[in-house]
Amino acid sequence: MPSLIAKSACDGLLPLSEGGVTLSEAAPARVTSVAPFAGQEKATDAALKTMGLGWPKPGQSFTKDEAQILWTGRGQAFLISASPAELDGVAALSDQSDGWARIRLEGAGAEAVLARLVPLDLRTAAFPTGSVARTGLNHMMMVLHRAGAETFDIMVFRSMTASAVHELHHAMKALAARAAAL
């Protein structure tokens, strides 16, 4: 058996920094898709509450220490950095860990960078900390989570990593150049 080299989704691409905005890869974590079986939403919520989380409503997330659960679609959420053992039998679980690139965009200009790529109002009044949206990052499907006032966590399909990094870096460079020219 040859020994294989494990590479993260953004290996060799990140981190990047432009004009006070940084783009970095999130630490590798277990990602599980959670889809409650019919009529089991309350049981799923109860099981998640024992972990300090809960079943998120559309656009919602819960965070407890390292563990997170993000709403990701109709009847579906992603459990991150936590074991889904508690949910056995109440929800359909599938491991997504290697399927997604998890990227963090951070800095005072993070909102302005995303404004060039995302067709959503991301001001804190409309998209406060903890909010989650399924939307597009230019032409890519993404899960967008506001982790802090100037911190966004972005998930895109792993196969789209290089394109996503390229798009984000392009917007970061354009904004930095504009600030430098003023």
Partner: peptide, 16 residues
């Protein structure tokens, strides 16, 4: 000429 109903798929969103 008036009200009609269509199906739309929220492809870049929640897949509904």
């Amino acid at each position: 000429a008036g009200e009609t109903r269509d199906l739309w798929y929220h492809e870049m969103g929640c897949s509904s």
